[in-house]
Every structure is written in C-alpha cells, then in structure tokens.
C-alpha cells in the first residue's frame, strides 16, 4: 500500500526501445520514445493498431522487458526495481483479465491479499471498491455472469486495490457500448480527482478529448505528436492554414499520415 505521491514526474521514459527477434530478423515495436507525465495528469496515448501503444504500456508496467532506454514510474526505475514499481501502480489491460470462476468480491479480496493486506483489510478494501464501481449488487456472483461493462469496471477496481500513484488503462472502453463507455469515463474522472495519475491508451479520439489533459500520438513505434488537445489542434490549424477549427480526428490523421478514406477501414471509430 502506498499513499505517498511520487516526487518529480509520475512517468518518465527516455529512449525507450522494444525489439523482438523473429525468423525474418529483428522487429522494432517501439523505436526510442521519450515521455514525461506529471503527477495528477490524465495522459492520453493514441495511435493506430500496432503502433506500439500496448507494448509501451507493458514495458512501463514491468510486464515486458525493455530492450534499451530507461523508464521511471512513480519515481522508481522500471528495470532496476520492478517490484517497487508494481507496488505503486495499477494496471487494467486491453483484455479485462479476470478469473471468471471467482466473484467480484473474491477477486478484489485476493488482489488485496497479493498487495500485502491481511484478510480483514482485504475484505474491507474490496467492499470500498465494489461501492466505487457500483458493483455491490452483483459482488457475490461469479464474474463470468457479468456484462462486458461490468467486467471492465471490476477490472478497473482490481487495478485500484493498492491505491496506486499511477494507473495504466490500456484501451479501457474498447468493445463497450456508449452507455458503458460513459460510466468508465466517470470512473476515470473520479479516480483522477483523488490524485491518481492516469496513463490511458485509446483508439477513441473523443475519449482522449473528453478525458485527457495532454496526449501523445505514437505511430510506427515513434511519438509523432505531443501536447494538449487544444495545442495540437491550434498547431495543425496554423501549419495547414485552415479556415476552421480542426478536430482531434484531423490531428490524428495528420500525425499518422492517414487519410479519412484509408482510416475508415483501419479504425472504425474515426469517421468524417
């Protein structure tokens, strides 16, 4: 458990690289990215499929080794002290990773035990989180009976058991209906309001616009834009001498070199 917020940057990465060896040679999934996320921010990390978003998150959360470069999360070096990082972060990955034979309450209690809480404290923390994500009524049902939105909320709750300094959310609303998506957005705002830094990857540009104070766009393993949504839009308007305010969709398409026509086939939610 930790309630102390990190001094300095919440996330700081320098020259982060991830390479894989394949039969055909080496593939660079992430090709040297620099990132700095301040404490208390909701930072959006956008990019097309396969751009390197999840690989970056997995390196920052100690799930994947770093080929070269360095990263510190909540003030702790990811490569040198991965266990120290894990104490200070919460992680909800793309797939809502749940043991579906357990109930929501059991999952949260187990998670608490794995973060060092005693049985009574883990049970009490589980109850708090069930209330936070509004799952008290279904708390004792096996999680396999939950809807997609409920599973995501439970996954989010498991990531909060240790009151993390930094919360990593990898595409938390992918596959959810619009109503469930709004519920998750509310949860993210509530969590951030309590002081937790949120690092959020998404393909939904509206989501980034709604939630993120700053964002970066990654394409082909490199960060190609970084700033606040309004800064990025203003930069595009000035550079292209546009006579209208561009949307974040326009920024994304410009940054990744895609056209609306091509993008419509690649990423369903980006539409004109």
């Amino acid at each position: 458990m930790t309630g102390t917020k990190a001094a300095g940057a919440a996330i700081e990465a320098t020259g982060l690289v991830k390479s894989y060896k394949t039969k055909d040679g080496t593939v660079d999934a992430v090709r040297g990215i620099d990132l700095r996320v301040e404490p208390g921010e909701v930072f959006g990390f956008l990019g097309p499929n396969g751009a390197g978003k999840s690989t970056t998150v997995r390196m920052l959360t100690t799930l994947l080794s770093i080929t070269s470069g360095s990263a510190r999360v909540a003030g702790v070096d990811v490569a040198a002290d991965p266990s120290g990082v894990r104490h200070k972060i919460g992680v909800a990955l793309q797939e809502a990773g749940l043991d579906e034979r357990q109930s929501g309450r059991e999952l949260l209690t187990l998670q608490g035990r794995l973060f060092g809480l005693g049985p009574a404290d883990a049970a009490s923390r589980a109850q708090e989180l069930l209330e936070l994500v509004e799952l008290t009524e279904s708390a004792d049902r096996p999680s396999k009976s939950y809807s997609g939105g409920m599973k995501r909320r439970l996954d989010l709750a498991t990531a909060l058991v240790n009151r993390p300094d930094v919360l990593f959310l990898d595409e938390p609303t992918t596959g959810l209906d619009p109503a469930s998506r709004l519920v998750i957005w509310d949860e993210v705002r509530k969590i951030n309001a309590r002081g937790t830094t949120v690092f959020l990857t998404t393909q939904y540009l509206e989501e980034a616009d709604q939630l993120c104070g700053r964002l970066a766009i990654i394409d082909d393993g490199l960060i190609v834009r970084e700033g606040t949504p309004s800064e990025l839009k203003a930069e595009l308007r000035a550079r292209r001498s546009l006579d209208h305010d561009p949307t974040l969709d326009d920024v994304f398409l410009d940054a990744t070199g895609r056209t609306r026509e091509r993008q419509a086939g690649d990423v369903q939610e980006v539409q004109a």
Binding site: L63, R86, H87, I89, L98, L114
Partner: peptide, 17 residues
C-alpha cells in the same frame, strides 16, 4: 487458460514474487 484470458498478466503486475 489464464495466460490466454489475461489474468496471468494481472497477477504478474502485482508485487508478489
């Protein structure tokens, strides 16, 4: 089953050995 479903990574992201 847990590796395929993602729970394995959830466990790996906790600070346990």
């Amino acid at each position: 089953e847990e590796i395929e479903g993602g729970y394995f990574d959830k466990l790996r992201a906790t600070p346990i050995p």
